[in-house]
Design a protein around this nucleic acid. Structure first.
Lengths: 176, 176
DNA sequence: CCAACCATGTAAGCTGTTACATGATTGA
DNA sequence: TCAATCATGTAACAGCTTACATGGTTGG
């Protein structure tokens, strides 16, 4: 079964520390890391689905006060697989927030080589995408572009350049 | 009735030049300006919906060969209203691609003051969002962040700084 | 004449949003 | 005790994706 980004976000947060449904909603509402729903109508159905799929379990905390979602072994495996997927050009071009979400959750993986690999793969895909954009800029198709069209393209290019330089900077943080 | 970004994209493209459904799909598939569907299952239902709503009409071209979608008067009004909406912080924070789409379609509006207003409003919202991010960075909540979390935040900040400097550059293009 | 492309659609399914609804706990 | 916050859910609906399906046109 394929999981949605929201589902991975829920698993990732529960992997860092067991959470209540309510607490998870708050994270999506208050931190910048969540452009995700935060509405009960999306979180709770998603959580029960993950429990049914065997990726999360609900357990009472030590004093039997709170129902907390914990990640199962299968859940951890699924999370790790997701985190280790190389960054694709499509992910960079259309779902870069997804890539950043994955990066944030790499904190759960001890081995810093995984983070390094991720960042190299991120750089690589970003480079390819930047080339595509620049080639499009020089294609006959784009010569007919309006000022607005050109500027919008320019925005894209500047942006991915910022992403690239970030990835290079971030990489250095993992090579002490 | 509220329209989806895809609907506005369809209207905007038809406003620039009457289009066939197939041609619209190609635009979404081949140009970088469309992270939108491009699948027939999304385009055609959306088009017929817009026709029913009276925002588009299908007309045969001069030689009766092709069915082209044209924008109606109401359609043009709806498009213009959408284009003139000020850029909100939420749009910058969570749907910046949507803002860029709107900017690209401002090409349809003669009066360059509208583009200038848009860019000022874009700058303003981006500034506010940047402040929010920086404040979060200094909040106690973020002190517990992992290296990954901090770097992900840093990515966001760099990015919005790039957007800001782009908006300033673009503004100058409209003040000859 | 046949492959490639033009052109348009439908049906099933999944995800998420909005809105509605409920009840427990806790601090002033 | 009462308001705020914690906490969890459901139902209706909208939107998009995937997959399936069909037929016309055009160039080699």
């Amino acid at each position: 079964m394929k999981l949605s980004p929201l589902a991975y976000a829920l698993i990732g947060l529960a992997a860092a520390e067991p959470q209540t449904g309510y607490r998870l909603r708050q994270v999506f509402e208050t931190t910048p890391l969540g452009s995700y729903s935060s509405s009960p109508g999306s979180i709770y159905p998603a959580l029960t689905k993950l429990v049914k799929a065997g990726l999360l379990v609900q357990k009472l905390n030590k004093f039997g006060k709170k129902q907390l979602y914990h990640v199962t072994k299968t859940g951890t495996e699924r999370l790790n697989d997701w985190l280790r997927e190389p960054v694709s050009v499509d992910e960079i071009a259309n779902h870069i927030d997804h890539a950043l979400l994955r990066f944030a959750f790499l904190a759960n993986i001890e081995d810093q080589n995984v983070s390094r690999d991720f960042l190299l793969s991120f750089q690589n895909a970003t480079n390819i995408h930047l080339n595509n954009l620049k080639m499009f800029m020089e294609s006959p198709e784009s010569q007919a572009l309006t000022i607005h069209g050109r500027l919008a393209m320019d925005n894209g290019i500047r942006n991915y350049e910022a992403h690239l330089s970030w990835a290079q900077y971030a990489y250095k943080e993992f090579t002490q």
